[in-house]
Simulated assay, not measured.
Amino acid sequence: MVSALTFVLTSLEPANAAETVLGSNATAEQVAALERQMGLDQPLWAQYWHWLKNAVTGNLGTSLVSSQSVGSALSARLPVTLPLVIGATALSAVLGIGLGAVSALRGGVIGQAIDALAMLSFAVPSFWLGLILVDLLAAKAHLLPVTGYVDPSQSVTSWLRSLVLPVVTLAVAGVTGIAKQTRGSFREVLGRDFITALRADGLPEPWIAVRHGLRNAAIPIATLVGDFFISMLGGSVVVEAVFALPGLGSLAVSSAQSGDMTMLEGVVVVFCIIVVVVNLLVDVCYGLLNPKGLPT
């Protein structure tokens, strides 16, 4: 369903792959001839059926614009996007759960500060934040590279440095969102009767908070972390454009602008597979985190 919808929406945009290949000086006859060669003159349902027959066998076809194999292009771009999204999700989860737990236990100013940061982070566009970080930490302070990507096979240190600003830019909204969810879930659990009973038994507060409080509050937190991972796939489109990263997001943008329907379909399929896998892993985490299914 997603691939079919993408096919229809892409066909409605003004970009034309044949015109992109031939350039603006091409005649209408030349464009029409190349469209016939590409199969773009066929009905939309016939184009989609031809793509679908090959896709179900694992053949995503070739790019209409560059004639590059879609599979090879995706395999080259995926190692750029995945570390970016995974790194941003991990940073969001670690900082968000830590801040949320501290806020639930201490409250007061910390809780108010998290609320204010949450509102601010959701209001600030990621592309604007990325440009500000580039200006402050790269262009002026010269602490990190401005843009670009370094393959880890060349230098692991340079690879990590090239990902710092994109990861931070992508993770900001996630940190405060997860912190708010953690604080709410944690405070609700800490107010339950069994926590009061554990305190009455004389168990140390850190043990109660970590061993029993966080475990019971973990399921809604895991759900939100999975949701943020999926949303960061969409955010990577903007962040990769800002930092000139050759990932799936920038490939999706360039494919849409050039009318490269085959390449765009390949990106959409990979994104959908990632979303399904992430949701499956979140469901598995439910079973692992469910206190009723774990030994005491």
Rank of each mutant, 00 (worst) to 15 (best):
A222M: 10
A252T: 10
L288E: 04
V85W: 10
R36T: 12
L64N: 04
A116K: 04
A15S: 15
P125Y: 02
V31C: 07
G287Q: 09
L288S: 01
F243A: 07
V164S: 09
A113P: 05
G130S: 02
V225P: 14
G235L: 02
R106N: 05
T81Q: 00
I97T: 12
F122Y: 15
P166E: 13
E35Y: 04
F186N: 04
D151Y: 00
V70S: 06
I97P: 10
T223N: 13
Y149D: 06
M263Q: 08
V168S: 08
A73F: 00
S67R: 12
F122A: 11
S69W: 06
T196W: 03
G293S: 12
S258Y: 03
A222P: 15
A218V: 07
S72W: 01
L44W: 13
R215T: 03
R161Y: 09
F228H: 05
V56D: 09
I221G: 07
H212V: 09
V268C: 03
V156R: 08
G87T: 03
H212L: 04
V237C: 01
T10L: 15
L160N: 00
L74Q: 11
D135S: 15
V31F: 05
R199W: 01
A173M: 15
L44N: 08
F243P: 15
L289G: 03
M232Y: 11
L34S: 06
S258R: 03
I178M: 09
L64D: 03
T223L: 07
I86D: 08
N16L: 11
G247T: 06
V56L: 14
G191Q: 06
V164Q: 00
A171G: 10
Y149S: 12
A256R: 15
L9T: 14
N54M: 11
V242Y: 05
A197Q: 10
G96W: 07
A28Y: 11
A28N: 14
P43A: 06
F127W: 02
W49G: 08
Q47C: 12
R77M: 14
V124Q: 10
D201G: 11
E35T: 01
A15C: 14
V65H: 05
D283H: 04
S126C: 03
R215W: 03
V210F: 12
L82W: 04
Q47G: 11
S158W: 01
F194I: 14
I230W: 01
L22Y: 11
M232D: 09
E240C: 06
G235C: 05
L251F: 06
V269G: 01
A116H: 04
S231G: 15
L78T: 10
P14M: 02
